[in-house]
Design a protein around this nucleic acid. Structure first.
Length: 592
RNA sequence: GGUCCGGUAGCUCAGCUGGAUAGAGCAGCUGCCUUCUAAGCAGCAGGUCAUGUGUUCGAAUCACAUCCGGAUCACCA
């Protein structure tokens, strides 16, 4: 039982005893900094049933707690707020519990499995900042759910076919002159992206020419030579034309090589990768099933539809008149495949909020088809990363490239570190590792600290900070603690929890309180699918530790019991920081 | 036009299952390194919580309306 649960029980008993009312669930909130205490119970809600004034209620309950609660030390009442302080012995017991559990904050297996699909790149362009947010969210969520007791399967659905892929293939075929990543020195995914942009430039030029010849823009967009050629290429691809397949495989292999490097840098990996070229024909048997069940219906032109008006959605096409699939057809098929492959209890899709409607439709259709697993389907919808100029657009080159940004971050980390000159004795491999840890810490933290649902702004002119509310701030706190622990080990000072007579320093109490919050933050992050809760927590904990660090001396305290306790406290804080950052995919350095 | 999401300090964001004088970081200004890492700590300054009405003992938080921004409503993915 947690302290909070004990306290709630005691308050409930106090209310029962004095007023003979069965209080509903007791809600405690953290006491505001300007008041004394750690937990606050608001008594306003009881005024009606008890016919007592709020402050009087606080006094009555407070006195009862002093008498009969095993954990309460003192209280004060401000209007309808009962602020409660705990006994030092309670804090120390609590600390003893967490320091003896290395897995403190993690839940044992609950026997449930979750598939998390994220990243899902297109093979016609390199990753950009928006993809990074997606990758970090998916990866972090996987780690958080795993810590909460779920078995996790990370998947990625690669969008490796379609008209957009044919566009870059066409531009390469026409303008590439046999250029390769090796011959050009351009990373494979960037090389493909280069031809995707070239296609767009040429295509626009062709449209402009047609418009000048008197064609309407809409028609010109459909009749420009290159778009017709790209469509032809798509048909050839679908027929399995040897030359087309060879070109497709060649370019995709370059892209995978490039993606591989980027995934390695950001330390993201998958348990299972699906390729759209394998799955794009799936889903047609589901259409047949839906028709038989009367869930779908056929129109005169042979196209197949579903009406989701009852669900507050519209009529939706699920199969074209010519029998070919649309997006939703493929997704129905792919979801069915995932379920066949893994039989998970839950399916998560980390996909941008521009597809909110699509997922509502997908889940609604699955439900209509009687798929029980639809109950466990969730769209983890996240906001776009915008630039001050607006939305990022690959074709127009207004994107923040992931590789470029990572390289800049590493450079900044190196510059900043060298300026401070604290690691002059590191060899180059150690230094490089540190720069990477700091760069990725800053970048991941920057993207994960914001509520996933909200769109966020990135200003390329203001580089991502290494000070203040950042990953490196928390990493720094960790490194400081590690330094203390090394010193303690050298001096052979053991980490020991003090006896009953020990009087806690306020900064020590604050730290234990902060540490006690960790498990509930992990479970909240898991149930709300919000890694930002972990990032906020890690920052708070680091801040509280830094205050402690500035306020008390660990090694020069006259009381050796205090020194040993503070070493123990520091150790648990460092472990909790390491675990919390670990849930965000951020590593911690021994020194920085 | 319908639906959905958002609007909190100069900037970037917390807080939103209703509770105390609305919090951080950055930027600005003051202090603090002969003592465990100053990527730090302490402090100052900065707010009509988009607007209005309602519900309530109590509203940034809930409801309704309005304004602003974004997304979506494709036989694109």
């Amino acid at each position: 039982m947690t302290i909070e649960e004990i306290l709630k029980g005691d308050i409930k008993k106090a209310i029962q005893k004095h007023f003979e009312i069965d209080a509903e669930e007791i809600i405690l909130q953290p006491t505001k900094k300007e008041f004394e205490g750690f937990y606050t119970f608001v008594t306003f809600t009881l005024t009606k049933t008890t016919r007592k004034a709020p402050a009087e209620l606080g006094q009555i309950i407070g006195n009862e707690l002093i008498e009969n609660s095993s954990v309460v030390d003192s209280f004060n009442v401000v209007q309808g707020f009962l602020n409660i302080s705990l006994k030092d012995q309670t804090w120390l017991n609590l600390f003893g519990q967490m320091s003896s559990h290395p897995d403190y904050g993690a839940s044992p297996s609950n026997g449930q499995s979750v598939m998390v699909e994220f990243s899902s790149p297109n093979t016609n362009k390199p990753l950009h900042l928006g993809h990074l947010r997606n990758n970090f969210l998916g990866d972090s969520l996987s780690k958080i759910l795993k810590a909460s007791g779920y078995d996790i399967i990370k998947t990625c659905l690669v969008n490796d076919r379609g008209i957009h892929i044919c566009k870059s293939m066409l531009a390469y075929r026409e303008l590439g002159n046999g250029e390769t990543p090796e011959s050009s020195g351009i990373k494979g995914d960037h090389l493909a992206g280069k031809y995707y942009v070239k296609f767009d430039q040429e295509y626009k030029k062709q449209i402009k020419e047609l418009v000048e010849q008197g064609m309407k823009e809409e028609e010109a967009a459909k009749k420009a030579p290159w778009i017709l050629e790209a469509q032809k290429l798509l048909l050839l691809w679908e027929q399995g034309d040897a030359d087309t397949m060879a070109l497709w495989q060649k370019m995709n292999s370059w892209v995978y090589q490039g993606f591989g490097e980027t995934y390695k840098k950001i330390d993201v990996s998958f348990d299972k990768t699906y390729y759209e070229s394998d799955t794009y024909l799936l889903g047609k048997d589901i259409i047949e099933e839906g028709l038989q069940k009367g869930v779908f219906y056929r129109k005169e032109d042979n196209s197949v539809w579903i009406s989701l008006v009852e669900e507050g959605l519209d009529e939706k096409l699920v199969l074209r008149g010519d029998g070919t699939s649309v997006y939703i057809t493929q997704d129905l098929g792919t979801t069915e495949l995932k379920n066949k492959d893994f039989h998970n209890d839950r399916y998560l899709w980390v996909v941008g909020n521009e597809q909110d409607y699509h997922f509502k439709v997908l889940f609604a259709i699955l439900k209509r088809l009687g798929r029980t697993y639809s109950e466990g389907c969730y769209h983890i919808s996240y906001g776009m990363v915008d630039l001050p100029s607006g939305k990022m657009k690959s074709r127009e080159g207004t994107v923040v490239d992931a590789d470029d940004l990572i390289a800049e971050m590493i450079q900044t980390a190196a510059d900043r570190t060298q300026e401070l000159g604290k690691i002059d004795d590191f060899d180059s491999a150690e230094a490089k590792q540190l720069y990477n840890q700091l760069a990725m810490g800053a970048l991941k933290y920057f993207l994960l600290k914001v509520d996933p649902k909200k769109r966020m702004l990135f200003n390329p002119l203001e580089s991502i900070d290494f000070q203040g509310h950042t990953g490196p701030f928390i990493q720094y706190t960790y490194a400081r603690i590690r330094s203390i622990i090394r010193k303690a080990e050298q001096a052979e000072i053991a980490a020991v929890i003090p006896g009953d007579a020990y009087k806690l320093h306020p900064a020590e109490r604050e730290l234990i309180f902060s540490l006690s919050l960790y498990p509930s933050k992990v479970s909240a992050a898991a149930s709300e699918f919000a890694p930002s809760l972990i990032s906020q927590y890690a920052f708070e904990l680091a801040k509280v530790y830094n205050q402690f660090y500035a306020e008390v001396s660990i090694f020069s305290d006259p009381n050796p019991e205090a020194t040993r306790f503070r070493v123990a406290l520091s150790k648990v804080v460092s472990e909790t920081i390491r675990k919390a950052l670990g849930l965000m995919g951020i590593e911690v350095p021994e020194r920085m």
